[in-house]
Design a binder for these strands. Structure first.
Lengths: 134, 134
DNA sequence: TTGCGTGCAAAGGTTTTGCATGGCA
DNA sequence: TGCCATGCAAAACCTTTGCACGCAA
């Protein structure tokens, strides 16, 4: 079986995400941040555990933006992120949750009329936020 | 100034996209396909020109799926791709255009109520298509 | 004690860059 | 002719893998 042991490293990575729910990080940044905190976790371990967290739906992997490396972000269960859409500004990188009734109905519409199950934990809409559009 | 010369290579790359508007390719695949056709274009040239076409909004760059490398696809002006959303199945990779009145109103809603300008040439929703969801 | 987890080093793969040559205008 | 474009080779990156050692249960 996989990942049956609770280790210090896994706890540190999870806690790092939980303490930074609105930010997004590369694996390298996570490893560096933990090293600076005095609780270093090797980059390889970060890559491996982060992949597992993505598969479990606990964090979001973001690849579409400006960053060359993949970014990872905690999925806060209290925010109900799986039922709303998300935006990311192509210029400043800011990330927005779109919790509103109209948009929550988009996925239902797509399923009912187009027979496609959108996964909000894997989808991000890109464009320009108000500030960056001037 | 940049790219002021019309070369055989640029023409071949553009024509390749125009002749395969519903498919998506990696840079390597484009270079290989042109080589097989007897009109080889170096991989470096493909990377460089494809980047320019993306910046000009002529082709779409797709990074979120299963493929490790970036995929590129022609944006057919006749299909009005900038006004509708797109889906890509995480399992089979199939790509869908979502042309319908309800969904065309989504971007307007996001702009009016959330002050964000979604760019449909840079955004793809991921999930499972009907077949792959069983 | 057993076997999963960790992390270094190395490999693998994609994309970018340097540079000499080639080709457009 | 002047300058941009091409493409090889190499570099630069990001991510994954192999392996010996460490640690949880």
């Amino acid at each position: 079986m996989n990942n049956t042991y609770n280790t210090k490293q896994k706890k540190l990575i999870s806690e790092f995400f939980e303490g930074n729910t609105e930010k997004q990080f590369t694996c390298d940044e996570i490893s560096e941040a933990l090293k600076i905190k005095g609780t270093p976790v090797g980059k390889t371990t970060v890559y491996r555990y982060v992949e597992k967290l993505v598969n479990e739906g606990k964090i979001r992997k973001i690849t579409g933006g400006i960053s060359k490396s993949a970014l990872y972000q905690y999925i806060d269960e209290d925010m109900n992120c799986n039922s709303h859409m998300h935006l990311k500004c192509l210029k400043c990188g800011e990330f927005f949750h779109l919790g509103c009734d109209f948009l929550n109905s988009v996925n239902d519409h797509i399923y009912e009329h187009h027979r496609f199950r959108v996964d909000n934990s894997k989808s991000v809409l890109y464009g320009l936020c108000e500030k960056c559009a001037e």
